[in-house]
Amino acid sequence: MSPRKSEKQETSYHVIHKLPPGDSPYVRAKHVQLVHKDPDAAIVLFWKAINAGDRVDSALKDMAVVMKQQDRAEEAIEAIKSFRDRCSKQAQESLDNILIDLYKKCGRIEEQIELLKQKLWTIYHGEAFNGKPTKTARSHGKKFQVTVKQETSRILGNLGWAYMQQGNFLAAEVVYRKAQLIDPDVNKACNLCHCLIKQARHFEARTVLEDVLMGKLPGSEDPKSRTRAEEILLELEGGGGAYAQTLNSPSLLVESSSSLEDAFVEGLDHLMKQWAPYRSRRLPVFEEISSFRDQLAC
């Protein structure tokens, strides 16, 4: 066999199995992960690649993902915290995204919220995507461009969901409303409806839901989204007593939004003082919080 033919076969092998070229510790780890399908052995080899300084950015991210798949999310969190200082500045944003997923899987909601707020702060200062207006992302093997606007809405959606897991439906409502202003979609609209229902504000929930059922939002044509919206509508129609109480008690809306202004914004201001002691300006994502009280009182 000629050397040229051998090189072509090797290149084809790497392409088929989506392996990086070469025979370094990281490449061997990927080979075990993707070809031999042995995640535990791959994790050991990823550790070796990190310790050898071989493609540390990729090795740490890949190892954390494999650990999550193996229900070793807590270990993955500790690994990222221990070794992220060895990674490049360009890798930090991806590591944060992996950490957020790991926190979610482990039920570490407080840490998830904290990191999501840090990412919003990074966007606020123009530091997201390493200062670029877009970034290249992957999904199911395909590349696509993500804008800062889309990323902001995505982070807000995750933040709203985290607040919902805490039972903090006021905070979740505010976040979802802002997310919908930036980049509306059906999923966030349904979550906003859920937040409003939990606060017995059924009239507002129905108003939000109408946009979904009338096909006004991106994703309205998705059968699963429509089924979810119809289930929420049934929940609204079945809650007649609470629904009537909401319509007859406008003071409930003022009281709820007042609590939001007093408690949530106070907590946010405290958080911002920790990050920027001499800056009084609020994050743009929360600039409209105070206006919600006036809107709801009308």
Rank of each mutant, 00 (worst) to 15 (best):
8 K>Q: 14
10 E>Y: 06
11 T>A: 15
16 I>G: 00
20 P>T: 11
23 D>L: 05
24 S>I: 01
26 Y>N: 01
28 R>K: 14
28 R>E: 13
31 H>N: 03
32 V>A: 02
34 L>G: 00
35 V>Q: 01
36 H>L: 14
38 D>W: 05
44 V>R: 12
45 L>G: 02
49 A>K: 02
51 N>C: 08
59 A>N: 01
62 D>Q: 06
69 Q>F: 08
69 Q>E: 15
70 Q>D: 13
79 A>Q: 06
79 A>V: 05
84 R>M: 09
91 A>S: 13
95 L>P: 01
99 L>M: 07
102 L>T: 04
104 K>S: 15
108 R>K: 15
114 E>H: 13
115 L>A: 07
130 N>R: 07
132 K>P: 03
132 K>M: 09
136 T>W: 10
138 R>I: 09
139 S>K: 13
144 F>D: 03
148 V>Q: 11
154 R>L: 11
158 N>Q: 15
164 M>L: 09
172 A>P: 08
174 V>Y: 12
178 K>E: 15
179 A>L: 01
201 R>A: 05
202 H>I: 04
205 A>I: 02
206 R>S: 11
206 R>Y: 12
207 T>F: 09
207 T>Y: 07
211 D>L: 10
215 G>A: 06
220 S>Y: 01
221 E>S: 15
227 T>V: 06
227 T>N: 05
229 A>Y: 05
234 L>P: 03
237 E>K: 10
237 E>M: 12
242 A>Q: 14
247 L>M: 14
248 N>A: 13
252 L>K: 10
260 L>I: 08
262 D>S: 12
269 D>V: 07
271 L>M: 09
275 W>Q: 12
275 W>D: 09
278 Y>P: 01
278 Y>K: 14
280 S>H: 10
281 R>P: 00
281 R>Q: 13
285 V>P: 04
285 V>Y: 05
288 E>G: 05
288 E>A: 10
289 I>N: 06
290 S>Y: 14
